[in-house]
């Protein structure tokens, strides 16, 4: 347990440092600091992966059960998604100023939660669990990426020729940022859809019904509908610019609530993945 916790703190430290580097790099227009922020983000993935590997070996399952594990999995995907994307297109690195704080908050929250390893209940013991969780994590990572870019878009739009426009000048042009935001939303929409579909097939196998309007199921559908509306207003109603960016900014916390908040707020047959009571 100690090794795992030490590694996890090391990961969190890397992410905090990365966040600070992004903030200073963008604020003082220091390209090197932004680059180092990206490096620190990628570096943090190593101890986090190692910690999760140690835990997997200890508890016998992946990061699926309990707030600590679920938030950890989400953080890992958010940082990896961002690091890979920014590595391939360095101009996106500055979006780390909005993305890495989400990772820090998630992992910081996880570090405050109980770290007791919870056993896999009979209801959760299925290969669908891996598919379902993997796509939930992928979807959330894509939504956070769209959130980060949308924040950058709004900041620049509000400071058309001002200080912040200058600070974020390394990002691609506004219309490209907007297009990228939409593409991340589209990717997240696909992953979230696969998460719902795999969940429905799994529910049918585990409980004999593919959909039961359970609060967690309902909220996952709500998130999908919110992003469907985003795509509709973008592609068919022609929304562009700041109001579309605000849409992406507001939608992401709803997806976070669906993943981490609903099992706490509502009684649900799915509640076990956070509380570890049952599957």
């Amino acid at each position: 347990m100690t090794t795992e916790i030490v590694l996890m703190w090391a990961a969190l430290t890397c992410y905090v440092v990365a966040t600070a580097l992004f903030v200073f790099g963008v604020t003082f227009t220091k390209e090197k600091l932004i680059h180092n922020g990206l490096l620190a983000s990628a570096l943090g993935l190593l101890p986090q992966l190692a910690a999760l590997g140690v835990r997997w070996a200890r508890v016998g399952h992946g990061p699926y059960i309990g707030y600590y594990e679920v938030a950890n999995g989400l953080t890992l995907f958010v940082v990896a998604f961002f690091a890979i994307g920014a590595w391939r297109n360095r101009r996106l690195s500055a979006a780390g100023i909005a993305i890495m704080p989400v990772a820090v908050l998630l992992l910081g929250g996880a570090m405050l939660a109980s770290k007791t390893g919870l056993p896999l209940t009979p209801n959760l013991a299925s290969y669908w669990l891996f598919i379902h969780v993997a796509f939930a994590n992928l979807a959330f990572a894509a939504f956070v990426a769209s959130f980060g870019l949308a924040i950058a878009y709004v900041i620049r739009a509000r400071s058309a020729s001002g200080t912040w426009a200058e600070r974020l000048k390394r990002l691609p042009a506004q219309d490209v940022v907007s297009e990228l935001t939409t593409r991340f939303v589209l990717a997240g929409f696909l992953f979230w859809g696969i998460m719902i579909v795999s969940g429905a097939i799994w529910a049918n196998q585990a409980w004999g019904r593919y959909w039961g309007w359970d609060p967690i199921e309902t909220w996952s559908l709500i998130v999908w509908i919110i992003y469907a509306v985003y795509l509709h207003v973008r592609f068919t109603l022609g929304w562009r610019g700041e109001r579309l960016a605000w849409f992406a900014i507001i939608a992401m916390p709803v997806s976070l609530f669906a993943l981490l908040g609903t099992p706490v707020v509502f009684n649900s047959v799915h509640g076990g993945y956070i509380g570890g009571v049952d599957g």
């Binding site: 709500i222 469907a228 509306v229 509709h232 207003v233 068919t236 109603l237 509502f266």
Partner: peptide
Amino acid sequence: SAGLAAGLMVFVGVWSMLATFVPQ
């Protein structure tokens, strides 16, 4: 019309949200 489709999706989403806060 795209407006109606978006409106109906908003309706289903908001209705579902409300339903989770009201015992069924």
